[in-house]
Design a binder for these strands. Structure first.
Lengths: 177, 177
DNA sequence: CAGGCCATGTAAGACGTTACATGATTTT
DNA sequence: AAAATCATGTAACGTCTTACATGGCCTG
């Protein structure tokens, strides 16, 4: 359900082809909702079949430029304001923590340290992303970039939290000796 | 892949039937990796077919008690020490933030406030969970409960972070006027 | 003996990944 | 002319959800 929304959301910002969207998925959207090429193209066909988007232009190499329809806008509104039917929260990382007693304590400590370093690197990566893109965040009314930056901030806080947490667990682990 | 691991992990703590595991999924595991009854039973059959678990006893009402095998232990070890092939991170909540410019600012603020309150409630729920269960966390060597508590702590920090973040975004939203 | 809990299973369909397949256009 | 990029599609397979289906055992 959510890939449909992610694609629709990108088309709501501006029209584009499957290929265009694919680039945006690889660039920014992957941080929020990754998708593969295969999935994206078939989703676009489904969206068009359901009348949520329509082909606005046909270009070279069979390029189909899509545009969101009124029905598509309505569907987006519905989804954005209805968090209750989101897919359930799943975290392989948390599951791994849950099972960390199955390996020797030393290895568990190494894993936690690796996790902390990875999170540090993610914070750095997101800082670069924040610096690199040319954000258009000046208007009176909050626009797409305002919320994209908010999402970016969320990612940074999440990873900072993870790094702190992992180091605290290591500390507790070591205070057992 | 990860449900297989979650089930295997529970059986590594102690043997049990599909029904037993289902109760554990509803109780604690759902916070980490939710699964449905249907999925669990078929996964157990697959695990047994692959020799990662085996039926250790058959009881009344066709009850099959499963026990992890050596191959199962090996598979668990392999998975726990290999985070690189985890499924990619997906968050409907973040996607929604990304698209929040599509609704009026007032509604967006309401959504963020609801999010903050939900996260507060989650922190409270997890505090209760921490208080309610009889944790066995006294041994020299960190056991399952040590890491289960660490996972619980992670959940609390995550939700505290989310609540703070949502309130900060609201503040930035309001400083626009 | 009725109702609740124990206990397991199947089937259909949506969602996601990997791999395969094809061809047009632009750049070097 | 070759290589890179643009551009879309299909097929197979695994995961997850929802709904349906069945029946045994225990308690009141």
């Amino acid at each position: 359900m959510s890939l449909r929304i992610a694609a629709l959301g990108l088309l709501a910002q501006r029209p584009g082809s499957g290929y265009d969207l694919l680039k945006q998925f690889e660039k920014s959207m992957a941080n929020v909702w990754p998708a593969t090429q295969s999935q994206l193209y078939s989703e676009l066909n489904k969206l068009a079949d359901n009348g949520l988007i329509e082909v606005s232009a046909v270009g070279a190499r069979g390029r189909k430029e899509y545009r969101i329809t009124d029905a598509g806008h309505a569907e987006l509104q519905r989804w954005v304001t209805n968090p209750q039917d989101d897919p359930p929260f799943r975290s392989a990382a948390l599951l791994r923590i849950f099972l960390l007693n199955l390996i020797p304590t030393g290895q568990a400590r190494v894993h936690l340290a690796t996790m902390a370093e990875y999170s540090d690197a993610e914070v750095a990566r997101l800082s670069e992303l924040r610096g690199s893109a040319d954000w258009n965040d000046s208007g009176e009314i909050p626009d797409h970039d305002f919320f994209a930056l908010a999402a970016l901030d969320y990612g940074q806080r999440l990873n900072a939290m993870r790094a702190d947490w992992a180091r605290d667990v290591i500390a507790k682990l070591e205070s057992r000796h």
